[in-house]
């Protein structure tokens, strides 16, 4: 089972935190900091796997990928295949890339909602849901379309009226 997905930048600022086992917010921050401490100390030429027993409890491992200014980190237990997890990060990144057309950190910061939607289409409750980025994309696009059509009727007018009200 996948325990957590963490996306953070190279300064250790969290950009997306998703824990599939509940952790209180302080604990989430603490875990993120420990993960960052481990990752920032690793040189580029080493493997992408780290034993995470000390951070997430016995038997856990993490796989990370360092792309541009971001770390993508998957934390999982002994039931998962490390190499496959690495591919799954690839699926996530590819999907983001197609969704945001050359994804960069800013896209993720301002669209963290959408990030969650994408992630929920790939990983579901700690299990792999879909590995075809095309299908993920289709689902996400459908959701944004629904969102837009709904908000064009109900949401936008409200916010416009809100602006006048101020």
């Amino acid at each position: 089972m996948i325990r957590a997905v963490i996306v953070m930048n190279t300064q250790g600022k969290p950009r997306l935190l998703k824990f599939y086992e509940f952790q209180p917010p302080e604990k989430q921050q603490e875990l993120t900091r420990s993960v960052f401490a481990v990752l920032s100390g690793r040189p580029d030429n080493v493997s992408n796997f780290v034993e995470a027993d000390a951070i997430f409890g016995p038997g856990t491992r993490l796989v990370y990928k360092h792309l541009a200014t971001l770390y993508f980190v998957f934390v999982f237990d002994s039931c998962e295949n490390e190499l496959a997890m690495l591919d799954l990060i690839q699926v996530l990144v590819e999907t983001l890339d197609r969704c945001f057309k050359n994804v960069c950190e800013l896209d993720i910061v301002f669209n963290f909602n959408k990030m969650h939607t994408i992630l929920d289409e790939i990983i579901f409750g700690g299990q792999v849901l879909e590995t075809s980025s095309e299908r993920v994309l289709k689902a996400v696009e459908e959701i944004s379309r629904l969102e837009k059509s709904a908000s064009s009727v109900s949401f936008v007018p409200k916010s416009v009226s809100g602006r006048f009200g101020r």
């Binding site: 969290p14 917010p25 963290f112």
Partner: peptide, 14 residues
């Protein structure tokens, strides 16, 4: 709620 989710990610109580 959208804002709170962002604030939650930064580690503040929500």
């Amino acid at each position: 709620i959208a804002k709170l989710m962002f604030i939650h990610m930064l580690g503040y109580p929500t």
